[in-house]
Amino acid sequence: MSGCDDRQAKKAMAALFEKGTDEGLDAAGFERLRAHLATCPACQETYDRLSRVESVLEQRALPKARGALLEQALWARMAQAAGPAPRPVMRPARRWFTSPFLVPLSLGAAAAAVALVVVGPSLQRPDVTATQEWQARSASPGVGAWGVRAFCVATTGTVLAEARPGGTLACAEGNAVQFSYTAPERVHLSLEGLSKTGEPLRFFPSEGAAPEVAAGVDVPLPFSTPVQGGWLTDAVRVRASFTDAQGRSLADTQVTLTPAAR
């Protein structure tokens, strides 16, 4: 048998078989394994045979652990695709973040680590003059209850930094920027920035008109934006526009994003 001396790959395969994702193989390890398999027929055969055993054990075509790891690989791939490609700007100079950066950051980080405040039905239309929670997160305390906060989230889901409305968030390449909004009523929301070259960067929504979002406090937006591809090499001012159904402006807030050293 032709040899493969990549012991890490073999250990990874065994760990996947023995422990699955439960202290077995994580997403990064799975990606490394897949990269190795792509170039190693011997390990591919082993992987195949182990997969067959797992399939028979679980009575599944796609063993659960592999399905879970593939799911993570899918989100990671979509995240990579979401990065704004550095390319010449055509007129009109308008670049869109065409695809969302999904679950690992936006769910893992935003929903858990970002200290999400769950808003119950009773808060759907709060009295903004009486609710401190809303005031504290407003772009203009005492005036309105609208605001956007930005978080720099590591690939592990850890929140590295945050910025309140009007503040500045430093986020290094390889991490992701996650926004959350606070709005006292249902409203249409869009988040756009300007790159140093004056090129519009659209954070939310990724395309189309500003969607209606529910009232809430610190509601994470469904997508995070990975800091990759060189779009955050200088300060980017991100403007959050809250508008009503007729497109009339209800509030504008701003957060500035800046690059940070890794």
């Binding site: 048998m1 032709s2 040899g3 493969c4 001396d5 990549d6 012991r7 073999k10 250990k11 065994a14 078989f17 023995e18 422990k19 011997a42 055969e45 082993t46 045979r49 182990l50 055993v53």
Partner: peptide, 24 residues
């Protein structure tokens, strides 16, 4: 599962895949 891996190897299901680095 660890024992099962060893068993599969002992029965030849994985045996032909054994290489020098197959110490696991």
């Amino acid at each position: 599962k660890s024992r099962l891996l060893g068993f599969l190897q002992s029965k030849g299901y994985l045996e032909d895949l054994e290489t020098q680095g197959w110490s696991f």
